[in-house]
Amino acid sequence: MRRRVFLIAGIVLVALVVGIALVSLFWTPFPAADTTGGRLEGPGAHHLLGTDKLGRDLLTRLMIGARIAVAVGLGAVALGAVVGGVAGLLAGFANRWLDDTLAALLDILIAFPTLLLAMLVVAARGASLGSAIVAIGLAMSAIVARLTRVLVKRVLAMDYVTLARTSGVSWPRIVTAHVLPNIWPTMAVNLALQFGLAVLAEASLSYLGLGPPPPNASWGRLLQEAQSTVLTAPIGAIAPGVLLVVLVVGVNLLADGLRDVADPTRRGHR
């Protein structure tokens, strides 16, 4: 029952941010590049959450930021899950030699700080939303691959896989029928964790000026721009910070809930 509450809370929080992102595609209070407002206005009837130091509407920028956060989270997780998942499956199935090589490569990749790796990609491709997604997704894929490899090896050592082989079931069918369902509950939780980290990583990249360029307003960039005025207009820093927390916590709750739905052995035990 408690689990169910977490799942619903997760759905609500994530839906809130995704809803904001979707609305921003059709409508924002002001155009993204509108600077007609006064500088650092407080919250009021005209600018609901006030303006930044260039006179841009804060709510407008937050809504566009939600779009970027969701895009980066989904894009990076999708890229990381596919690249990392395939690499991990390969390593899990591979012979000793290939497996050792892949594992060593992964360890080297993981030893690289994510942000440094991301900066490398951004340096090579230039700062854009796509660069941020590719950079974060690739860094993530190493972590996903290592987890997948371990999980796959554990499933392959099970008697039911041996039995499936003794009854002549083909490898592709073993992967789809046994391996993927059995690694999914753990993977789902990890991917949700990675989603949260991806959103945070994008915020960090933007904070360093390496994210999507203006007038794209990612939450990290909002935080960075609000840094110098945090004492006079604290809402500029608080609002994107709160939304970041809402999204990351929401996704984690959602993933926990989804794992319980995906795993019948956990049902009805709480």
Partner: peptide, 15 residues
Amino acid sequence: AVVFQEPSTALDPLM
């Protein structure tokens, strides 16, 4: 065909 010792690992827990 084979029957193994441990039925709990011989069956896929998620199927």
